[in-house]
Write a protein that binds this DNA or RNA. Structure first.
Lengths: 225, 225
DNA sequence: TTAATAATGTGATGCATATCAAGTTTGAAT
DNA sequence: ATTCAAACTTGATATGCATCACATTATTAA
């Protein structure tokens, strides 16, 4: 049986737990394999567990007006999902859906809360995680508002290349519709933006597979908006 | 001499401190009166203190591409400012500027960090604060992307009326340019949006003073985008 | 394989809002 | 009061992108 104790990719927060705290954690935690399309948490439902993304990839999204999906961010391995609603609000304010087969640990809310109140180092790591997330959100917010589509797409391609896939040749596990929901545009405009970036030789794209040909130019487009 | 111990509007986090922890806090904390326009923290500078907004109002902003100011959010009394960079990054990633005369407490970073690691309840309150902030950011993000100007302005007017001023007759302490930076538009478009909402009788505006005449209609506009 | 369905691409058009260019008001300084 | 600069308003024009309509290509099921 797998234990958190022997888990190689447990979070820094879990690292900080004492032996008996880890036991509490472990007893109220279960790891589940999820496939693309599976729902981790769903907006509007009661918040009963915190999810820890061990491996894979998920989209964090939210229903906007008229039901339009808005992708808020991409959750990478090491992310806690659904943590925002465990302390005060009890209803999930956003959904999380797997976009690349994932291993997810679900930790009971009460346990999570107990550990925060019991071990300051555990809380400290969570604070660090939340702070970094907020700064990312700020950056993303400013970028979305001030750049136009080509710049936003360039951002996204560089983000997947540098921060997620660590490669210049990779797949973005999002449909054109989802890409649009992520860069705040429409399916059609995403298609055209991809064509723009391809035409000037910065990328080569086939389906969901992206190959960066000219990173410098792509960066310049990203920076200039 | 004023002490945190006797402070009526200290944060919930400070509430949770023990007597000697409170003393540590107090010794490394100083309250300062700031006027409109004064800078609380500045993007790019070293993060040496956490600011706690006791009273007044501040804008949290960030330089975008080409130097365009982007207002990320409004900080209300009870907000911790500059907390995001104290643990990992050391450089402020955003600025905070007073928009209504404020009382601000500056707490030394080392002290703040020490208290997080020493008192789990203190950290717990901060986590709660950070979680709520992130959810607000998500909502704001989705709204900005999916609503058009009139809806975004309606949002903002209702936000000031309900969440900040608790009145239907109040001043928004932002210039038209700042309002634009807040609702992600331009000075001119803000003017026109104000005119739109005035023309249909939802609000009456003179300068920075806003009077809500038809809250229901305003709400409808906000909801429909 | 073929049929059916979903995802994607493309061209034509319209619209919201940015941008530009004057004017006008406001507020501070003299 | 008068002057000056900053903030604001207003109209005309430009443009980026959404929207619509339809063609094409993948993908799945039969």
């Amino acid at each position: 049986m797998k234990t958190c104790e022997s888990c190689a990719i447990r979070s820094k927060a879990v690292e900080s737990l004492s032996k008996d705290e880890l036991e509490i954690y472990q007893e109220n935690c279960s790891e589940i394999q999820l496939d693309t399309g599976d729902i981790i948490i769903k907006e509007g439902l009661l918040s009963t567990h915190v999810a820890y993304l061990k491996s894979g990839l998920a989209k964090i999204h939210k229903k906007g007006i008229k039901g339009t999906e808005q992708i808020l961010k991409i959750a990478k391995p090491g992310s806690y999902i659904g943590i925002q609603t465990i302390l005060s609000q009890k209803i999930h304010q956003y959904s999380a859906t797997v976009i690349e087969d994932s291993a997810v640990c679900f930790i009971d809310v009460a346990t999570f809360k107990e550990l925060i109140l019991r071990n300051a180092a555990f809380g400290h790591e969570l604070i660090q995680f939340l702070c970094q997330e907020e700064l990312s959100n700020f950056n993303r917010f400013a970028n979305m508002q001030q750049k136009q589509i080509d710049g936003r797409l360039a951002d996204t391609i560089l983000y997947f290349a540098n921060d997620i896939k660590n490669s210049i040749d990779f797949t973005i596990p999002l449909s054109r519709n989802e890409l649009a929901a992520f860069i705040c545009s429409t399916r059609e405009s995403v298609t055209r933006a991809i064509k723009d970036l391809s035409d000037i030789g910065t990328i080569h794209v086939t389906g969901k597979r992206f190959h960066i040909l000219n990173a410098d130019l792509l960066k310049k487009i990203s920076e200039n908006g």
